[in-house]
């Protein structure tokens, strides 16, 4: 069977299949997170970290619900209130992790210039390249959501159903937990990529790259900035997105579909905006990559910088080393993003 699967994997499966396979394998080849070509190690480490945290958290929550269960004065509503609060914290955490990773991978969500050139002259249309990249991103995102939310959803369902007063189905809790956590992740992911899609559709090609980097930095800073506030988030406010998914959980557990409305809308609207923007802009995006304007001549202020540098450092070798490091930091995209985050922070 293994040999059969290997042979199936080695076979050619049409353009779409091959491109998705290619982009999937390339997704983790990023010098920021792994040694090139060793994405499997990163994926396994990430999975192990999530499982370890989930097991530790499960032990803590088991003690908490055991204490609630054994309290003689404890009521059913007190128990449910505790479950809701804990679930809300999980949802916020899952959404924050999704937001952080999506903003970090912001530039990898669309095909790159390298993709355009490396796949040039092959019988592959830009639409197929974009669709395959989107397919690969969706597969990675699905795997990420299952990895991030699967284990906490199972363990939390098991603990809650075990100690909950009355007859409670573990499967019902499992479905509700998974839907609420995964729903939060889906909302955040599509909302962020929809922002990128809107920028791509509305902005002029030469302003897109610059604006996109600034927006990425602003979003990243905003997410990191809100992390310390996680314990004090609103618990019932209607405009606070995690509350929508907590209501989705209630809708499944209590069988009241009306409560799920906001969650369903928040998942479908950004996804529809993103898909629309993607379809409208893929051709324009490729043109933007291929026909980018050449670099601008240095401004007068850079001449002033050179004079100041001359005054500060007399040795031309020192000047050269300083100028090289400065320009590398200023011109590399990842350094520019980090600088923007620091500035915004």
């Amino acid at each position: 069977m293994t040999a059969g699967f290997r042979q199936w994997r080695e076979d050619t499966h049409g353009t779409a299949g091959e491109l998705v396979r290619h982009f999937l394998a390339r997704f983790f080849d990023n010098e920021m997170i792994a040694i090139p070509g060793e994405w499997q190690k990163v994926a396994v480490s990430l999975f192990a970290a999530i499982v370890s945290v989930a097991i530790t958290a499960a032990l803590v929550y088991r003690d908490r619900y055991l204490a609630l269960h054994d309290t003689p004065s404890g009521t059913v509503s007190q128990f449910q209130q505790a479950v809701r609060h804990d679930l809300l914290s999980f949802i916020v955490l899952a959404m924050a992790v999704t937001a952080l990773l999506t903003t970090l991978q912001w530039q990898s969500l669309f095909p790159s210039l390298r993709d355009c050139f490396a796949l040039a002259a092959l019988p592959v249309s830009p639409r197929e390249i974009f669709a395959a990249k989107f397919g690969a991103v969706m597969l990675i995102f699905s795997a990420f959501v299952v990895t991030l939310t699967g284990m906490p959803a199972i363990l939390f369902a098991w603990i809650v159903s075990w100690y909950a007063p009355g007859n409670s189905s573990v499967f019902l809790y499992l479905a509700a937990n998974f839907a609420a956590l995964a729903g939060g992740c889906i909302f955040v992911f599509f909302a962020l990529v929809a922002i990128q899609g809107i920028l791509l559709t509305l902005l002029k090609p030469h302003t897109f790259a610059r604006t996109s980097t600034v927006v990425q930095a602003v979003l990243f800073t905003a997410v990191v900035g809100t992390l310390p506030l996680m314990g004090s988030q609103p618990k019932t406010t209607f405009w606070w997105p995690p509350v929508w998914f907590e209501h989705l959980w209630e809708a499944i557990v209590n069988g009241s579909p009306a409560l799920a409305r906001n969650a369903m809308l928040s998942m479908t609207i950004p996804a529809a905006i993103f898909a629309g923007a993607y379809l409208l802009s893929y051709h324009r995006y490729q043109k933007m990559l291929l026909e980018a304007q050449p670099g601008r001549a240095p401004t007068r202020s850079s001449g002033l910088g050179a004079k100041l540098l001359e005054r500060w450092m007399a040795d031309p070798r020192e000047q050269g080393a300083f100028a090289f490091i400065w320009k590398t930091l200023f011109r590399s995209r990842s350094h520019r993003e980090a600088g923007l985050v620091v500035k915004i922070g």
Binding site: E10, D11, T12, G14, T15, E18, L19, H22, L119, L122, P123, V124
Partner: peptide, 13 residues
């Protein structure tokens, strides 16, 4: 990758 995207079967490629 190039061979597969050009639709060449594995046994030939």
């Amino acid at each position: 990758l190039v061979g597969r995207l050009r639709g060449i079967e594995r046994c030939t490629l």
